[in-house]
Design a protein around this nucleic acid. Structure first.
Length: 555
RNA sequence: UGGGGUAUAGCCAAGUUGGUAAGGCAGCGGGUUUUGAUCCCGCCAUUCGUAGGUUCGAGUCCUGCUACCCCAGCCA
């Protein structure tokens, strides 16, 4: 990360400060542990910024570890996508990426250790039987008939499990803890299950795979993680995390701390639902610009810095939250406002004919790339007899609040001349197609000499040199603030979340793509080129519109 | 009385030993402006889920309520 961003404190940093002050730790080691079963989303960005941000600020390290204990749901394509997204966000993990599957041999050894200590047993109960014996939230469970199997038998049975002598579901290895515990996860949790599945990292070496609760704490300990940060739903699991570490022969005792996961209005942030959106083709894919995935936000035009800034603005607490989309939008606007060069594009064109400018004649105009930043330089535009302007910027009549082009009135063409509308031509549907006007040649870069005040400014694209382009405008993917709370969240999908427009942009844009990857099309919003754009067929994604107080007045 | 958590403005969120409610987003006024943008300036919690208690003084301490979230996968 190039620049150091100021990060406010939070309860986890205060815990770390205390651990450093007390000497409990000398260095801080964190980890970001995604399961490679889908793409990363903005909620993961919160965790990434937390874990990597802490490592940076405390001059510690942060590992990237794929929590790959369930080969049935995972795929190598997701590990590649995740690595790309973390890097793109601007973070570097310590050394090579890790995999929980790197530790399968050690994990297996610790499982045997528990068996030898009489703290784990192989259970042949069916899943339904196990569920019944688990009890309920208020009633204690009952012991499995296999709970007191002798150690040698358990060792032998676990070896047979490992050797592939049992089918999936036939048996599993359980930790012997307490069937009456008020923590459901402590009622003899399953720590190994049979799974005859090919694993993207270990191939066909294993047919038994460790469960999350058994794997995560040990992986943390093996890697020497000092602070293991996860989300609130794992608070109960912390008891099991600590139990495993205490009952196996491992020196490192990492501590788990939980923070609340991010919820964003008008979208969903659960892997399960995002997978469904992709698999049922409600969106184009994981990187659909309407998706809250890192890949989707990237394609939409969000910058890494804007996402990091969002994560610092939302903070880290244990409170359930629902963040407004305006918070995210403010972050990208703040970034692009200062870093995106300006350009002009007309999304819904009508023709403006300048009658006192002869056909074939063209005036060269030098326009600043940024009104508040001269260092961004200028560009050359040509201004000819036929110009494209936005349909909504012309009205045959209007009151004085409408500061745009009106018949018999004047308006400034951005970066160019003052023009006066003379008459309009309409089609069969009474829609204006062409406006005829005259321009004042003495108004380039200055106000009219006679003191006339022209309040409005509208943008335009030269008809002779402008390039045709498609503009893809995105709206929220869902019609309700919290789609996850719906009976069927897909029923709440906004059918108008994508609007496609065909218009014009000033020439040469794709030959001078700015470093930030985006432009501000003045008066309309921030745009970037879509991955499907070609020099013959330009396609722009609107990242976010400009703040629009006029729309508020009108609406 | 299963257990684990959380309650500060429309949203996010500071508030560490009790000393008189940061900041951001949104919103609302006003100024500048060749983007109805940006920028600037101002406003926006007599009150911290609620009822009591302790105290000269409570968002912070104590007690009782209430609301919401999580836990009964061989998912993570």
């Amino acid at each position: 990360m190039a620049e150091t961003e100021h990060r406010p404190t939070n309860f986890i940093r205060q815990i770390i400060d205390g651990d450093l002050a007390s000497g409990l730790h000398n260095t801080v080691k964190t980890r970001f542990p995604p399961e490679p079963n889908g793409f990363l989303h903005i909620g993961h960005a919160k965790s990434i910024c937390l874990n990597f941000g802490i490592a940076q600020d405390y001059t510690g390290t942060c590992n990237l570890r794929f929590d790959d204990t369930n080969p049935a749901k995972e795929d190598i394509s997701f590990v590649n996508a995740i690595k790309e997204d973390v890097s793109w966000l601007g973070f570097a993990w310590d050394g090579e990426e890790r995999y929980s599957s790197n530790y399968f041999d050690q994990l297996h050894g610790y499982a045997v250790e528990l068996i030898e200590k009489g703290l784990a047993y192989v259970d042949f109960s069916t899943q339904e039987e196990m569920r019944e014996m688990r009890g309920t939230l208020k009633a204690p469970g009952t012991n499995s008939p296999y709970r007191d199997t002798d150690i040698d038998t358990n060792k032998r049975e676990f070896e047979k499990m490992t050797a592939g002598e049992y089918d999936e579901g036939q048996c599993c290895l359980r930790a012997k803890i307490d069937m009456a515990s008020s923590f459901m996860c402590m009622r003899d949790p399953v720590i190994y299950r049979v799974k005859h599945a090919h694993h993207h990292q270990t191939g066909d070496k294993w047919c038994v795979y460790p469960m999350y609760d058994f794997t995560h704490c040990i992986s943390d300990a093996i890697e020497g993680i000092s602070h293991s940060l996860c989300t609130l739903e794992f608070q109960d699991n912390r008891r099991l995390y600590d139990w495993v570490i205490e009952n196996i022969s491992i020196e490192c005792t990492p501590r788990q701390y939980e923070f609340s996961r991010l919820n964003l209005e008008y979208t969903v942030l659960s892997k399960r639902r995002l997978i469904q959106l992709v698999e049922e083709n409600h969106v184009e894919g994981w990187d659909d610009p309407r998706m809250p995935t890192i890949a989707g936000l990237r394609r939409r035009g969000y910058t890494p810095g804007s996402i990091r800034e969002f994560c610092t603005r939302i903070g880290v607490t244990k409170m359930d939250n629902m963040v407004e989309m305006s918070m995210l939008e403010a972050c990208i606007r703040d970034d692009l406002n200062v870093n995106a060069p300006r350009a002009m594009a007309v999304l819904d064109p009508i023709k403006l004919v300048i009658e006192n400018l002869p056909e074939g004649e063209s005036i060269t105009i030098e326009a600043p790339n940024h009104p508040n930043d001269e260092s961004m330089g200028t560009r050359t535009l040509s201004f000819g007899r036929e110009i494209w302007i936005e349909a909504e910027d012309f009205r045959e009549s209007a009151n004085k609040k409408f500061k745009r082009l009106v018949l018999d009135k004047e308006v400034r063409l951005r970066n160019a001349f003052v023009v006066k509308a003379l008459r309009a031509e309409k089609d069969a549907n009474d829609k204006v197609t062409t406006v005829y006007c005259s321009y004042d040649p003495d108004t380039l870069g200055k106000d009219p000499a006679d003191g006339r005040k022209v309040k409005g400014v509208i943008h335009w694209v030269d008809g002779a040199t402008g390039a045709p382009a498609q503009f893809r405008l995105y709206d929220r993917l869902f019609n309700v603030p919290n789609p996850a709370a719906e009976e069927s969240f897909t029923d709440a999908i906004n059918p108008a979340s994508l609007e496609v427009k065909e218009g014009w942009v000033e020439p040469g844009l794709d030959n001078r793509i700015p470093k930030i990857g985006a432009w501000q099309f003045e008066r309309t919003g921030y745009f970037c080129l879509d991955k499907h754009s070609t020099s013959d067929a330009l396609v722009f994604n609107r990242t976010v519109g400009l703040r629009d107080t006029w729309a508020k007045i009108e609406g």
